[in-house]
Design a protein around this nucleic acid. Structure first.
Lengths: 168, 168
DNA sequence: TCCGGCATGTAATCAGTTACATGATTTC
DNA sequence: GAAATCATGTAACTGATTACATGCCGGA
């Protein structure tokens, strides 16, 4: 994230919560210790910047060693994705042990959340697609289409379930 | 998993690797300690079964207290999904720092893996769909359609990328 | 002969979250 | 007056992975 311009830990956190939130998670408890380790290893340097009305900040700059390390990472073999643990999917799997009404509730809840996530991605896409690299476009499109697919099945499942409730 | 019939820790592990692998991960290092804790809490009982030619096994049975606990879980609010960390998506996001050829390599690799996962899900679906509960069908269909969506974008992305390589 | 399957379990390690502490400023 | 934003960081805890130990059987 520092390849193009320097950032603070706080800004990195916001980026992770925003664009990266679809395939990465984090918290201050990992970010700041990692940053400290990276400084110790000479991958980044900290530059203290005084501010008025706001707390001082540490602007992080990437070093040449840091650039080398990042490039080496990009050339290294792809790491396997870690599985997303989904309580929703788990419950669907055990849906036979609850009533249809409960399953419908779960579906509606996840439908709403997924729609919200999709809307966010679509907005990001329309805002930035002109300045995005082709690979980034693929990245965001995968997110978009995965949510659309999920929402499609949820909608179909809901109408089937609601039919089942009526005919019972 | 014990609601319908008793199982061993080993069988639970296999199930987690198989059907549940799309939305849950695990290892012996979590399974056996969890099982031990559940026995201590009175949610399950262990029944030692002698076997010939094979090591003895501990058949796990759910208790009434265990059933109550499971039902209480199903009635409790849905827990948020934990994010899937994806090295592939992360690299796509930073694709501008490598050549198109490298991005194409990543895409092809994930294409193959995803196709394999999709084939597995489709096979499971065709084998068991007649005996599956409607909610389970939704669960497996979400997995199937998500992989299809991912593969669709990867295929589109690949042909765009290959075009870009040629015209450069 | 070696590998995979059956079967249970532990120990060391690593990674991650949550909650806190601090404190000024701006917005509702 | 409360809450959110800016901003950095730590400590305690929880959770998970990895690798190992054990050992027999059947098949390539």
């Amino acid at each position: 994230m520092l390849m193009k311009e320097s950032k603070t830990g706080y800004e990195i956190k916001k980026l992770l919560e925003d664009v990266f939130s679809n395939f990465y998670s984090s918290s201050y408890g990992t970010i700041y210790p990692t940053l400290a380790r990276m400084e110790k290893e000479g991958l980044i340097t900290k530059e203290n910047v005084q501010q008025e009305g706001k707390p001082n900040k540490n602007l992080l700059n990437i070093t040449d060693k840091g650039r080398d390390s990042f490039n080496a990472y990009l050339l290294a073999p792809l790491e396997a994705d870690s599985i997303k643990k989904s309580d929703f999917m788990m419950r669907l799997y055990f849906g036979e042990f609850v009533g249809y009404d409960k399953v419908i509730l779960w579906l509606k809840q996840v439908q709403e959340e997924s729609q919200h996530k999709l809307d966010q991605l679509l907005e990001q896409y329309s805002l930035y697609k002109d300045e995005m690299h082709p690979a980034q476009i693929i990245c965001i499109q995968i997110g978009i289409e995965e949510y659309k697919a999920k929402l499609k099945i949820i909608a179909e499942g809901l109408s089937n379930m609601e039919q089942l409730v009526l005919t019972k």
